[in-house]
Design a protein around this nucleic acid. Structure first.
Lengths: 225, 225
DNA sequence: TGTACATCAGTGAACGCGCGTTCACTGATGTAC
DNA sequence: TGTACATCAGTGAACGCGCGTTCACTGATGTAC
């Protein structure tokens, strides 16, 4: 499917417009107009708008899942006795993502905004597609997280992992309006990679806060407050 | 406007459907159908779909802004020498929000999901409406945050405040699918208030992580990694 | 007390519009004999 | 080498549909005299 120039142009245009306006607010006419191809080409190549949305994700996620697993291989050896720090893992994930997003699409903030939309827009088909296709690939990340903070229960780790994901997705998805607000209020723009640098200590601190609470509290969460 | 039963029924139905499916995927026919009122009633009472969306937010946010400022009054006295802890402030905000959401609408998770959608769906009119109408009301929260972690610069505090907001919004907005995933993977459901209890140490830890990084690094953020 | 008029919440049906999808078609390239 | 057919990317125009909005209208309640 990916051999045709038309297919690539549709994917590029769709990706940018989806990230900008969301899935349901982006029409096939807007996509094919931006791509400079015929309206019917989307249905010819992809079959439907839903399938196009999934293809946009697959173009990022398939190489990302492969690359991330390769990168995380490196930590498998040094695992049990000397676990990697939270910050090391976060850097690995974020750098891998940035590399992939630059190579295969329109960059990391577009990618993250798509991820954010995939959670919040009610595209049931998309959630199912992502879980079915990529759920298995990210089991290794889960296993590594267990080594980073073994004091958390599996359920607690699940939730804190999604807290981290949420912070990241929300930040990247709202990057442009947030930067505008920062500029407007403090006369100071913050480039995307500066934001990511601020994000990492926040995420790491959050995970440590959760671990500390688990060590201190043990079922009586009230005591930490 | 709020004296008519029809108006309230439209707001209730709209709120639930917006939270469930997003703004652009919810039609006026669905809203008026659920509310049991005539299709034209929305345009009669509110003028347009956009104005309805704004009215749904106003019903929550107007009392919330008032109540939150009242609650935070209490900390103003004890401020400079003995600042409130991060956890205290987070509890105040979250409890106030839960109270308001239960009293004026369909509960906290619906409210937070609406907030999340307001960031991620490209409803330009809505963002403008929220900033114009409520921006000023939340200046006090900003001032209190400054007392909690004075070592952060204003810009850093802005970003970390939005990291916290992002975590919360994302979590509450995706509450249902996340709970399903937790149940599916660990055979263990997590009630909403349990999730909030897990969230607070994460947020507090994140803010502490940012403060520590600021104290340690001072412009050379690299050193914390 | 009765009549005429104004106001207002709500209605039913229709409006035009943009949407995703479909379909018959074209023209270029490859393949079989 | 030439002819007939098949395959395939891409096209132009139309399809039906659901959308937000509009408009003339109804019926109940309030107000002036």
């Amino acid at each position: 499917m990916a051999q045709s120039a038309t297919v690539e142009r549709i994917l590029d245009a769709a990706e940018m417009l989806f990230a900008e306006k969301g899935f349901s607010e982006t029409s096939l006419r807007a996509i094919t107009g931006k791509a400079g191809v015929n309206l019917a080409a989307v249905n010819y190549h992809f079959g439907s708008k839903k399938a196009l949305i999934q293809a946009v994700f697959a173009r990022y996620l398939t190489p990302f899942a492969v690359k991330l697993n390769e990168e995380l291989e490196k930590y498998q050896g040094t695992s049990a006795e000397e676990p990697p720090t939270i910050e090391m893992m976060l850097k690995t994930v974020s750098y891998t993502m940035a590399d992939i997003a630059n190579e295969y699409g329109n960059g990391p903030s577009v990618f993250m905004r798509l991820l954010g939309l995939s959670y919040l827009e009610s595209q049931g088909h998309l959630r199912k597609f992502l879980v079915d296709k990529y759920g298995q690939s990210f089991k290794r990340v889960e296993a590594l997280l267990r080594q980073v903070n073994p004091e958390l229960s599996d359920v607690d780790r699940f939730w804190n992992w999604h807290f981290m994901l949420g912070t990241t997705v929300f930040t990247m998805a709202g990057m442009n309006p947030l930067r505008q607000m920062s500029e407007h209020s403090y006369d100071q723009d913050t480039p995307v990679d500066e934001v990511v640098k601020k994000l990492i200590p926040f995420l790491a601190g959050g995970l440590r806060g959760a671990s500390d609470a688990a060590k201190a509290g043990l079922s009586e969460t009230e005591s930490v407050v």
